[in-house]
Amino acid sequence: MKKAKHKKINWALYVMLIPGLFYLLFNNYIPMTFTVIAFKKYNFQKGVWGSEFVGLENFKSLFSTRDSWIILRNTVGYNLVFIVISLVIGLALAILLDELKSGKAKRRYQMSYLLPYMISITVVSYIVYALLSTDTGFINNSILKPLGLEPISWYSRPKYWPFILTAVNQWKWLGYNCIIYYSSVISIDDGYYEAAAIDGATRWQRIFHITIPIIRSTIITMTLLQLGSIFRSDFGLFYQVPMDSSALMNVTNTIDTYVYRGIKSVGTLGMSSAAGLYQSVVGFVLVLLANYVVRKIDKESAMF
């Protein structure tokens, strides 16, 4: 009996896991322990473990700067705006697509919406530059000039950037959001619509009383999961699209760009690693919380 059980252990399966386990160890688990540098005064010569322990000093200096408030406001603020707008646009496009009759047209629209999703944020930055460059940009030369308006030096005017970044983000992600909602809209049983048609329901009634209530769980799940990552930001969008312009820092600096800037200048490495740890921990708690709520609403959609 014991022998038979022993035979069941299939070592080949464990061998398969080895490369992945090593990767998790070096890429994820050992670096997790390095987060202790947030509590140390990092000294390059002494390394992570040898550096002097300073307790909460880094956190104190981080939270005493104005930066800590700005990066928090920007990260959370942009995310909230993005969540609401991508829900509205993604859902609206999905419903509009579903109303079409021709399958070919549906596919064509979907494909054109997905094009921006495919390209790198570096290429996106060039496109934004082609639009906004002060001397050669499309907007200054081909829109403002014919209207008799003065050219705007976009890359040094912070007040426009909340709108620009929101537009760029939508441009890149609307196809993705549309497809997620579209896939759940098309899964609705036609029987509901037929019954509604017999009852003489208008198009609006159909959308608000059938479509949206039925795909409610997708909407809630997507929103909660995005809320769970409200402490994260798309580094490329906030660093590269504004071309790292220091004039715009007030409205473009997020936790991720702040942490990256810490690598470049040793003076702020302590505060940056404190910010990084703060992001990881709060982010982790938020994901757990979001998942807990999703689980209550729709067990199928929960991540775990």
Binding site: N28, P31, V48, V259, S272, S273, F284
Partner: peptide, 24 residues
């Protein structure tokens, strides 16, 4: 679990950077 937890929690950029540049 090892896989899942690595998605949920990560040390962030600076520790990862130190790992790959310092150790490797």
């Amino acid at each position: 679990f090892l896989l899942f937890f690595s998605i949920l929690f990560n040390g962030g950029l600076i520790p990862t950077y130190m790992m790959w540049t310092g150790t490797f």
